[in-house]
Structure formats: C-alpha cells, structure tokens
Design a protein around this nucleic acid. Structure first.
Length: 190
DNA sequence: CTGACGATTCACT
DNA sequence: GTGAATCGTCAGC
C-alpha cells in the first residue's frame, strides 16, 4: 500500500537487446492479497499463473488480458504474501523513438504510456517477463531523487474492477495530480 | 477436453 | 456510449 504511493515519481526502466526505454511512474494501483476480491490472489487462489505473486518482492508479474494487452505489476511483499502493484501510467523519458516503433504511433503524445496496456507495449513488456527479478539489468526501478509534492499525490478507487464488489471502492489507486499521462475512465476519475 | 471470461483499448454510432 | 477483438487460464465435466 505504502509502496504503491512510494513508486510514484520513480522511474521504470526496461533494456532489451540494448534498447533502453524508461518512464516516470505517475499512476499505480495496489492489489492487497488474499483479502482483496479484485486481486488475482484473492482468497488464497494459488495457481500456475498467480504463483509469481506469492514470490518475494521485487519480482515482475506480467499478465495477458483480453488476449491483447499486457499488464505490468511489481510484486511487493515477502514470500507467500501475495501483494502486487499495477503500474498504470508513465511519463516517457528515454527511448521514445523505440516506444513509437513498438506502438506504431507516428509521434509521441499522452497516449503513448497512458494506461497499463499501452505502457507495457511501449516498454516491450511481455508475459514471458513474468518472474523476472527487478534487481537485474533488463527490467528495474530507478530513482533520480525526484518526488511528487505530497499535495499532488491523490488516492482514489481503482479502475476496471467493478466486479470486486465493495473492494472496488477501496482507495488503492494512486496518481500524480495534473499529469497529462494519468489514465482513467470517465466514471470515477480524478 | 470444453466453455466462459477478464486488473483493456480502439473504432465507430 | 457501445461493442468487438482475441487467447491464456481456470473450473467443470
């Protein structure tokens, strides 16, 4: 939970085949383990797919949704405690031309890394990266000391988890107010 | 083995 | 605002 907030302002970096891309994290969502109906690990569901969420913190969990989009998560807790943080939006920093090529966009705009599906595509993240440690040199979190002002960090309900009942209302989504890269639907936004 | 569906996005009405 | 795309995962038979 605290970790989701602390990740705001940090830099997510991927480096595949010498192509480095990075972006500052401006939006995250926390998934709070077995008590969170919106989490894949809810109620102790532990399967081949979700196994990685039970790993120790600092592990990547990349999940394919709707057969189309990849969603990138960071496993945040100790072994056997399935907490994860979904990275929902970045502000592009390095490797923007590479991102453009990956996404097929002609020019950089706010949609390049806005939304978990777009972001993963821009950084070249695939489900095959699930289980990769973030302590290595292909996918990792960097910190240049930049921090959002405390008054600019906003918490709100998560997106796309309406099926989770009451848990869908929990303020587990954190984002930096005013960033043009923050995603969000029209309903419960900002 | 079979069927149902999702932590989304994009194009179209 | 609505609906389709598209496939790995999981539950059930």
């Amino acid at each position: 939970m605290t970790i989701a907030r602390d990740l705001l302002g940090k830099i997510l970096v991927t480096e595949f085949d010498g192509q480095r891309t990075s972006g500052r994290i401006v939006e995250t969502e926390a998934y709070n383990g077995v008590t969170d109906r919106a989490s894949h690990a809810w109620s102790g569901r532990r399967t081949k797919r979700t196994e990685v969420i039970f790993a120790r913190g600092g592990t990547a969990y990349v999940y394919l949704i709707y057969g189309i989009h990849h969603l990138f998560n960071v496993v945040t807790n100790v072994k056997d405690t399935p907490h994860a943080v979904l990275i929902r939006a970045l502000e592009p920093l390095e490797g923007i031309p590479v991102m453009l090529r990956r996404t097929g966009k002609p020019s950089p705009d706010h949609s390049l890394t806005r939304g978990p599906g777009n972001l993963s595509r821009a950084l070249g993240l695939l489900t095959s990266h699930t289980g990769t440690t973030l302590l290595g040199d292909t996918i990792f979190i960097a910190d240049d000391g930049w921090r959002p002002r405390r008054s600019d960090v906003v918490a709100g309900p998560r997106i796309g988890v309406d099926y989770a009942g009451e848990d869908a209302l929990l303020p587990y989504r954190f984002f930096i107010k005013g960033s043009p890269y923050v995603s969000g639907r029209k309903k419960i936004n900002q």
